[in-house]
Design a protein around this nucleic acid. Sequence first.
RNA 1: GUGGGUGUAGCUCAGCUGGUAGAGCACCGGGUUGUGAUCCCGGUUGUCGCGGGUUCGAGCCCCGUCACUCACCCCA
Length: 412
Amino acid sequence: MAFQAPKGTYDILPGTPFLAARDGLLEPARLAGYDYMEPPVFEDTELFARGVGASTDVVTKEMYTFSDRGGRSLTLRPEGTAGVVRAVLEHGLHHGQLPVKLRYAGPMFRAERPQKGRFRQFQQSGIEAIGLTDPALDAEVVALAWQGYQRLGLREVRLLLTSLGDPACRPAYREELTAFLTGLDLDEATHERARLNPLRVLDDKRPEVQAQLVAAPLIIDRLCADCKAHHDAVVAALDILDVPFEPAPRLVRGLDYYMRTTFEFVHDGLGAQSALGGGGRYDGLSESIGGPPLPGIGWALGIERTLLALEAEGVEVVGETGLAVFVVPLGTAAKAWAVGFVGQLRTRGVATDLAYGERGLKGAMKAADRSGARWAVVVGDRDLDADVAQLKDLTNGEQTAVPLSDLLEQLA
RNA sequence: GUGGGUGUAGCUCAGCUGGUAGAGCACCGGGUUGUGAUCCCGGUUGUCGCGGGUUCGAGCCCCGUCACUCACCCCA
């Protein structure tokens, strides 16, 4: 074979519940008033550099950046939030009712080494609630993701929740943590990471590192009064919403814009990449990309990982509705009739296909069976002479002759 | 970017100590001149990833290379 899909990409093939997962995860949000929108797949490189954070791995080494013919530097979006907020600002959506509630879905791009549950082009479904700082809104956003997973039938998703503080309390904490980390016996790369973003060292997986971190100061214990009150209110609201969560004081996210409420959905059946999705509050993002102060909170859920979780739990997701009727014509006159009949059924919204090609009746019936259709309509020239068609129920094999004049009505 | 594993039919894989390329599934046809899902019979499908080396002989051994994959890192 001459070509194959580029490294880290894959084909969404028939038979996978991709659409059911992508859209199903957003269904609770749709019912909560989150309208669909989608920003472009590429944006000005600077939008991501400033929005996501220049010190993040995503920006420093994982972006697909290119110059177009006009010499502009563009980047394939590595995440969705920056583009959504940019669109809100550009179109002034925040000048109307607040919060602006949006949902979106589509491909994201990061130039990482692929592995299980990690691709260079991957799909996310996400929502954003922009314009308000209200802990009840935080709880709604978190709950909508939780409900999305529940809706798909996942039962082993765990919600990790914490608060990362805000500009009032984080700087002092950051200093304290930096001082603590400086005293530790860490390798060069980790010290460098500590210098860039000390928070990120906290979720280092290595046991020898974790062992040194048991006494590390945690932001959740150092929250300012406002952040603490906000977090307490979020926790109380989640309780009311009956969304179970695990306090995760060491939870860190890789995008710089997160503050206060921060959360992640994890699953133990996925391999090393256990994060199904995540999100948080990003009250400073708008300003960092040149907009007015505009708080916001949202999440993005990975579709590929959701699919892996479904597989791990053995959940059968009902995919696309298949065919209802499969028509099997025998002979030229019957074929001509069938082509017209199939058209009529489709016009009435009945999913219908027919046996093309020169297969024998047996082969055509086999095709009818595999099509998943409930009904087979078998028509030969001698049926047409009698003005009937054979209507067969493929679930039980029962077949009756139905007058052609009644057939459409029976199936539609 | 750094490691490990794996590359044989459309798919999942077997292939002994180096000796003519296999199975199951799938697909096609027949058993039934007009009936599927079961059953029976038959059939199609290969650059053994690629290149080189050793050998009388390489799917198997050696070297290189590419791809895939898992993990580190990071994250969805």
